[in-house]
Simulated assay, not measured.
Amino acid sequence: MPAISMDQHTTEAVAGHLGPAAIRFTHNDGAVPVLDPDVRDSMAIVTGFGPTNAPTAGTLSVMLGAVELQRQLHAPMTVIISDLGAWNSRNVAWSTLVQVRDQMFAFLIALGLDRDATDLRSHLDHANLVRAGRIARYLSRADFQEHRESLLELYADHGLLGSEIGVVTDSLYTVADVLGPFDHGAKHVLMVSGMEEAYFTDLARLVLERQANARELGLGWTGNIGALYFRVLEGLAGYPKMSKSIPASSIHLNMSPHEVAERVMRDDQTSQPAVLSAIELASGWDATSAAAAREAFAHREAQPGPWHEIRAEFCATFNRYATLWKQSAS
Rank of each mutant, 00 (worst) to 15 (best):
H299G: 11
F25K: 04
A31G: 08
A3Y: 01
D116V: 08
Y199Q: 04
F144V: 08
S256E: 07
S330H: 13
N128K: 14
L253E: 11
L160G: 01
L111R: 09
G19D: 10
R101Q: 15
S140C: 06
T222M: 05
V79L: 12
M63T: 14
F107L: 11
F297H: 11
A287C: 10
Q145A: 14
G159W: 00
A110L: 03
P33A: 15
R71M: 09
L179G: 10
D83R: 07
L253I: 12
M104G: 04
S243I: 04
I23N: 14
K244N: 08
S250H: 04
V178H: 01
F200N: 04
P55T: 13
R137P: 00
Q269K: 11
D36H: 06
L124N: 13
L217T: 07
K326M: 11
G218S: 09
N28P: 02
V32R: 10
V175M: 02
G185I: 01
S289I: 01
Q269H: 11
A93W: 01
G223N: 03
M6R: 05
A13N: 05
N53Q: 11
F200G: 00
V189Q: 04
D36I: 03
A127E: 13
L84W: 02
A15S: 15
A127F: 00
R141A: 15
G223P: 00
T288L: 05
G133T: 07
D119I: 10
E262I: 04
D102G: 09
D268G: 07
G58V: 03
A198D: 12
D202H: 05
M77Q: 11
G133E: 06
V189W: 00
